[in-house]
């Protein structure tokens, strides 16, 4: 009896240690990554870096152009993906009847989420850059990004709508409200926190995507800062990519890349924290 209990307890502790080590491993990798990047960026991440334009000379290079480009893309992508995503989710959750058509649509949206982002770059190149003749502009980049993250918005918005309890809808219908009134006045307001969280996570994904922009044809070195949505541009992750490539010849580029990575990480961290904060704040009380 005693031996059997001891074996069980020993196994219990062993597994507990194993799981803990696994978590520590993940944390360890992250720490190593951060330490390496931050140490490489020391001395290179300063105000002139953040506000300066690109330059061949590493000491004078800044990421203002990349920031403007990324920001411009987000200004295009955000409303497009939000409107399309939320409307799709509303249709699927509130209007579509369970059946083959609905399953078909949902399966395909889920599949879209798994498509490699490079493919979206091809889509953007073919449709937006060439067919719509937008070229490698901020507009084309933003539209491509909005499609890339659309599945995230759709799925998380659907989740948010689904989490609104049915008895709230019943109460609304019971008072003679129409379906649209019920959606507009009860369901949507109640699902905003969930939708917002999903939306922010979608944006944070879009900010960091590199492959589609490379395929779209973002230039390697762009000196002027874009000032219209039709201008070609450079984006932060792409800039990091090219600097890293060129670091073979010019080692200082590695430091520039590291500094830019830190900026990107800070932005992503802020966005994700905002999303988590919103989600926790509105953790529902029904």
């Amino acid at each position: 009896m005693n031996r059997r209990i001891r074996v069980r307890l020993w196994l219990n502790n062993l597994l507990k240690t194993a799981f803990m080590l696994s978590a520590l491993f993940a944390l360890g990798v992250l720490t190593v990554l951060l330490v390496q990047i931050v140490s490489q960026s020391v001395g290179w991440l300063d105000w002139p870096f953040l506000t300066g334009k690109l330059s061949i000379q590493p000491e004078r290079a800044g990421i203002l152009g990349a920031i403007v480009g990324t920001l411009g893309m987000m200004i295009v992508a955000a409303p497009v993906t939000l409107v399309l995503g939320v409307c799709t989710a509303i249709y699927l959750e509130e209007y579509a009847r369970d059946g083959k058509i609905k399953s078909f649509i949902q399966t395909n949206i889920a599949n879209l989420a798994g498509v490699p982002s490079v493919i979206f770059g091809l889509l953007g190149l073919t449709v937006f850059a060439r067919m719509f003749q937008l070229g490698a502009s901020i507009l084309a980049g933003g539209l491509t990004m909005s499609l890339l993250v659309l599945p995230i918005v759709v799925v998380s918005s659907q989740e948010a709508l689904r989490s609104v309890p049915q008895y709230l809808r019943e109460a609304s219908y019971g008072m003679g409200a129409t379906k649209w009134q019920t959606i507009r006045r009860v369901v949507l307001p109640a699902s905003v926190p969930g939708m917002l969280t999903g939306f922010i996570l979608a944006l944070s994904r879009a900010i960091g995507e590199t492959a589609p922009l490379v395929v779209l044809g973002i230039p390697v070195l762009l000196l002027p800062i874009p000032d219209s949505f039709m201008d070609t541009f450079t984006a932060l992750p792409v800039q990091i990519y090219y600097w890293t490539l060129d670091a073979v010849l010019t080692p200082e580029y590695a430091n520039l890349a590291a500094a830019a990575i830190v900026v990107l990480l800070v932005v992503l961290f802020a966005l994700n924290s905002a999303a988590i904060w919103i989600r926790n704040k509105f953790r529902k009380r029904y």
């Binding site: 008895y167 109460a171 019971g174 009860v186 529902k284 029904y286």
Partner: peptide, 8 residues
């Protein structure tokens, strides 16, 4: 209804 269901 049986369970009170005020709107949020």
């Amino acid at each position: 209804f049986q369970k009170p269901n005020p709107f949020p």
